[in-house]
Structure formats: structure tokens, C-alpha cells
Design a protein around this nucleic acid. Sequence first.
DNA 1: ATAGGGTTAG
Length: 685
Amino acid sequence: MKREYLKPDCVTVASLLSACASNGALCKGEQLHSYVIKAGISSDMIVEGALLDLYVNCSDIKTAHEMFLTAQTENVVLWNVMLVAFGKLDNLSESFRIFRQMQIEGLIPNQFTYPSILRTCTSVGALDLGEQIHTQVIKTGFQFNVYVCSVLIDMYAKHGKLDTAHVILRTLTEDDVVSWTALISGYAQHNLFAEALKHFKEMLNRGIQSDNIGFSSAISACAGIQALNQGRQIHAQSYVSGYSEDLSIGNALVSLYARCGRIKEAYLEFEKIDAKDSISWNGLISGFAQSGYCEDALKVFAQMNRAKLEASFFTFGSAVSAAANIANIKQGKQIHAMIIKRGFDSDIEVSNALITFYAKCGSIEDARKEFCEMPEKNDVSWNAMITGYSQHGYGNEAVNLFEKMKQVGEMPNHVTFVGVLSACSHVGLVTKGLGYFESMSKEHGLVPKPAHYACVVDLISRAGFLSRARKFIEEMPIEPDATIWRTLLSACTVHKNVEVGEFAAHHLLELEPEDSATYVLLSNMYAVSGKWDCRDQTRQMMRNRGVKKEPGRSWIEVKNSVHAFYVGDRLHPLADKIYEFLAELNKKAAEIGYVQDRYSLLNDVEQEQKDPTVYIHSEKLAITFGLLSLSDTVPIHVMKNLRVCKDCHSWIKFVSKISNRAIIVRDAYRFHHFEGGICSCKDYW
DNA sequence: ATAGGGTTAG
């Protein structure tokens, strides 16, 4: 009698088990399991389901599977739990086998069965199978069930079928935040931020209260388009709804401020979060990196390491990208070492970031190595490598890789074509480039964007076919933007074509009257064509409009610090030595045929009156300093904010020969590799 | 049930 009194009922045991499951308390759960066996209630359907759920939630899938195989088969819960278990492992084939088997055994899937299998389809990208299951959902009458539909919406939205997701949401008769949020975040995931916000607004207008995740998604959508004020408003709304302390909203806010370049506010929001997780940190790091505050991003990354926090794939991806954008070779390599140590080098996205990092830092060989050693590649990997080759002027390598990409069945996208078209342009492969441009729409179903038209204009005009380029612009189906006109004007300067050049400049000055580069290009074009009156007029116009030329600046990293040089500056502590060595180099260069280009200083509208022997371009200073300070086994890496002028280009070729050194210059446009008196661009740039 | 970070170009 007493024993009977003490024996807990099955429902109590099951709820204890599920408490263990949600807290990951496997030991306590196992004790309960022994008790269950002793008490003879192990075949109770509720207890049985709770036990299986315990092992699945504690990731002991093996024990769970064994239990499942010996249990009674008429309990649908067991099948559902197993679907979740294999879903956790992204094991779709086993999930699907169970899904089919349960129906063969005569069991009817319920509102928990469909979400479990559909989530697995979503996560492994098996949309076709998901669609089949969708058909069955309709047949079995679950098409109005919010649990099932929210997962269907999520699946279609995540895979870009936003119209289908939208239709499912519209057919729902019940108001459901989760279904709405699934669609809203789906739009955001495909960069349709305005559409996401539109639906968020509509949801509220319909009187559906948002939850924390809805607010978080909406704020993230604002972050995506740098809509600072709208994001703040939504934050205020979330405050009213009582979600002010929520982690997901806090993280979204950090990301919003960081991506809007509001460094201080981002830190402030970050500090407000009590239990910061890796996403909080990463919101700062990636947000700073994306808004161009790469130094800050790297600082936060270092801070995170000092706090002994484990960085994730995401964090490493962001940090490498930050190092790439500012070409911080040293820190980037340190991060790479950490990545290897932590075994994250097997992650595709991290490797993709590394390819870009090495390419942007001028080490195309290291980029290639990273690319070749990847066990698995995706489209971004190919794009990063093709673009890297292109930026370094290795047009043929870029084209070959593009052909190989198609051969292995990887689909080229818009980015691929920007890379391959600019690669053709860099080496003058006009016919080939035009063929690729044609193939974009004809073979790959891609609609060319302004950037692609700009590439084609560059391709044609740089090769000297200026009238043809002009005709192409006039006949193309989109409105030409400033980039396109600038490209044309730049080519007209190279080819001394005043007529087309004036035409381009006219449009460019209308679109961007404040851009100093236009005036500089135009006055150079007049100068090289001997039209001095026109050149003077252009300068006068520039002065009248108060437009200032961006000063040329070059920088080089020596012994962990960056040394920056402006045109003709003597600010460096070693200035005397640098100028002395420079004179020596000039003398040696002249002995083997270097002649200063008389147009070289025409770029420098303001300072043309000055003595050209004093007035030295910044890249010459940086390279001279590099030769003085670096051991002669390492290549000289120099970055420049503007394009290298013709005179400096020729000078560097001579210097690479005299000094027997590899000199790699990254200018505003591309990389130049100088070695043994020649440049990788083959003087075509 | 629904999210919040990374990678490619111009």
C-alpha cells in the first residue's frame, strides 16, 4: 500500500524527464530511466517518448536509436523524435527513410512530423523533397496549420522562393507571428530589406504583436540598408512591448549602429548587453569591417582574444575580411595562424576570406595556394580567385579559371562576370570579353548590371576603340552612370581622343560636379593632346567651383608599422637618407635608359609650378624607403590611393632591375608586379 | 516553430 502511494504517475515522470532533456542533464535522466524500468512503466507511451527525447536532446543519438528500434512502433511521438534526432545531424536520407517507414507501418504524420522533416530539408537545401512533402501536407489537410506552415514559409523563403512563401502566408487564416517573421527574415536574407520592412509594418498594422525575434529581424533589415532612424524607431517599439533586455534585439542594435558607422553608439549598445554572446562580439567586428572601420574591427577582435573568448567561423571570416580591406598583412597572417591552430581552415567561407586577403595584399601565390588546397569550393571561392587574378593583371589565368569553373559545373554569377570581364580588359582580350558579355544573358540567364556595362566600356575603350565605346554606351539599355563616363574619359586621356573625351566629361561633370578626378582627367587629356588653352580653362573651372584634388599618398609596412608618404613630403624622420638614396637610384636608372616623362606631373594641377626635382610622387618615396629598410630577400609591397602615373611606372620598372627586387604596387585600380625591369601589366593599364 | 555574424565586384 505504502509503495503504491509513493509511486509517481507516468505524467510526472515524463515531465521530470523532459526537464532533464531541456537542461541537458543526462545523468539525472539516466537515473530516472533505471527507475522507470524498475517501476515497470518503460513501455508507457508518454514515458517512452520522453525518454527518447532525453537522449536526443542530450545528443546521445546512438542510445536513442537503439531505444527506438526496440520500442513499440505505434507511438507516433517516437518517430517524430527520431526525425528531430537525424535532423540535428543533417542526415536527410535517414530522416526520410523514417518518414516513409512510419507511413508504411500505417501511422499518420501529425503537426510535429511535418515540421521536423521539413526543417531538415531546409537546412540541407533539399527543396525538391520539401516540395513533395508540401504536396502531402495539402493532401492530409495540414495546409492551414500554423506549425506546419511556418516551417514551409521558412523553407521557401530561405531558398529564395519568396513568392511561394508569400502565397502560403496569405492563405493562413490564423494570425501567426512566427509565419510572418519567417517571411520577413527571408526577405532580409535575400537582401530585400525594404520588402522585409514593408511586411513587418503590415504585420503590426494587422494587429499582430511582434515578438523579440520579429523585432530583431526588423532591426537587422534596417542594418542592411543603413536605415539608422527606422531602426531606432523599431527599437523604441520593442521597448514598449517589454523586450528591452532581449539579447537578440541587443545584438541586432549593435549590428545596426556598427554597420551605420556609428562607432560610439555601437560600443554603447554592446556594453548594455549583460550576457554577451559570440554574436554580440561579431556584430561589432563585422559591422565595423563592413562600414569601413577596419582598424576598429581588428581592435575588437584583439580585445575578444584577450578576453579569452572563443572566436567562431563567423568572427574569423569578418576579421580576415577587415585585414584584407586595409591590406594589413601582418595581422591577417596572425589571424590565419590562429585559424589553422583552431582547425577553422576547413571552413569554406573562412578560406574564401583568406583568398581575398592574400590577393588584396598582393600575394597572389598565397591566394592560389589557399584556393587549390580547399577540399571543397563554392561559387564565392571561384569568384574570389578569378577576381584576384584579374586585379593582378593575370588575365589569361583568370580566363582559364573561369573556363574550368564552368567545366566543373559551378554556376557563374554577376560577380564572376565582373571579375572575368575586367580580367579581359586588363590584358586587352577584346573579342573574348565581348563574347563572355554576350554569354551572360544567352547562356547563363543573367541580366547584365551597370558594373558589367562599365567593364565592357572599359574593354572597348582601353583598347582604343573610342567611337565604338561611345556607340555602345548610346545603344545600351540602361542609363549610363558616372563610372561608365569616367571609364570612357580615362581611356580618351590614354588615347588622346579629345572629341569623345569632351563628350564623356560633359556627362560626368553633370552627374558628379564635385569629383576632382574628372577635372584632373580632363585637364590631362587636353595637356597630352597639346590643347593648353582648354587645359587652363578646366583648371580655372575647378578653382572656381572650389574642387580640390585628392592628394596622392602611398604607404608601406616596415617592421610592424605603416609609413605613409605624401607627394614631395620631407616629414619622415629618415627623409634626408631617403632623398639621398633616391638621387642615387635616379642616376643609376638614367644610366640604363630611364628618361623622366614630361607629362608625369600634369596630374598635379596645383603644384605644377614647383621644381620637379623636389616634387616627387609618393610611391617613389615609399619604394625608396622600402629598399633602404627591408632585407633584400623580401618583395617591396606599396599601396597607393590614386593610380600610378606613367613616369612612376617606368621608373619602378628600372628600379626593380637595378635593385634586383620584386616590387608590388597596389594602386586605386589594380596590382602591378615589377620584376627584372618589366611589369605584370605589360604596360597596358 | 520564427533570428541575430562571415566570404566575391564596382
